[in-house]
Design a protein around this nucleic acid. Sequence first.
DNA 1: GCAGGGTGCGGCAAATTGTCGCACCTCGAA
DNA 2: TTCGAGGTGCGACAATTTGCCGCACCCTGC
Lengths: 182, 182
Amino acid sequence: MTPRIALVVDDDEVFRQRLSRALADRGWVAHPCQDGAEAMRLAAEQSPDLAVVDLRLAGPMTGLDIVREMRMAAPGACILMLTGYGSIATALIATKLGADHYLNKPADADQVVAAYERVRMGVEPGGGESHEKEVPSLARVEWEHIQRVLADCDGNISQAAKLLGLHRRSLQRKLLKYPPRT
Amino acid sequence: MTPRIALVVDDDEVFRQRLSRALADRGWVAHPCQDGAEAMRLAAEQSPDLAVVDLRLAGPMTGLDIVREMRMAAPGACILMLTGYGSIATALIATKLGADHYLNKPADADQVVAAYERVRMGVEPGGGESHEKEVPSLARVEWEHIQRVLADCDGNISQAAKLLGLHRRSLQRKLLKYPPRT
DNA sequence: GCAGGGTGCGGCAAATTGTCGCACCTCGAA
DNA sequence: TTCGAGGTGCGACAATTTGCCGCACCCTGC
């Protein structure tokens, strides 16, 4: 079959390239896009099957803007929204604007592809998981939040500590301690 | 004006009564419902303006089932989905089935009313506010998670502490300390 | 009446934080 | 090239916060 086409819209150079390459490794034709304009142009040209859009983008268009227009430009595409912090409000808005699904930022290609497959299959993600039995431990929740914020600050520990409301030294120590942990 | 009518669907007796009373205090006519059947019956009879539905319900119908049918039975109602743990996947499914908004379980009447107002005002997709600047502090994330788990354990401190992975005494102390905080 | 669970709380040693300070590094502006 | 403004590790120490008993109740069901 002809390879499927994907658009990766993210202003983070590293992430964009990494995800694009990972998709390529999985047989996709991946087009990295840096901003809204480029994304819309490619969307019109390529008729992609999938579009991965970061919510927070530098430039005139936000991820939500792109989702909205992408829905027009490439009606058949599966649009995946992507951002940090499990912001439910954002996810809701995104889907109302036409995104098919939503992923948290530290998302790898497998998750993206999995989400794509699910959307294509028309499977409501986790339909049966109504019995949420697992309760993440406090430590786990803390760790994940730290990771998100840290990623959001591009690894800037000082800034992250400030945002998290704890001392830089403490953040350093937490980072030294947890990494090996599960 | 005539009071607005609300349906509170939750199998947790305590929560259901509490929220119903709180809504009543705010001038609503609140009907507590224990299960799907009762909810659907009341929905047909009362034409509620608002329905607050817990996702996890005992009985044959899940919250998602109720949302779906409620949308039919009371097309004009504002449907708020409600559950513990900010499960984005669940929230997305709920909105696809017709829920207007989603709230995390330890939700008080003010939040419910606020959500109702917002939905009625059509505040949602209003493009502009892409903000996403706020980063919840570590303490806040911790606190919210504790509240969710605790609610999930029906206030059982010992059990909650075990699930959270910390000592019962520590949980007690945290609870004694934070409450006043916002 | 008693065993089993749960809840407060006192106390203490052990672990974690909050703070300072200091020695680099790196990157723009001067 | 030199400076100065941030950033990053890390050592040291006091201030807090945990982890961990123990004990005194309370309910609840057998």
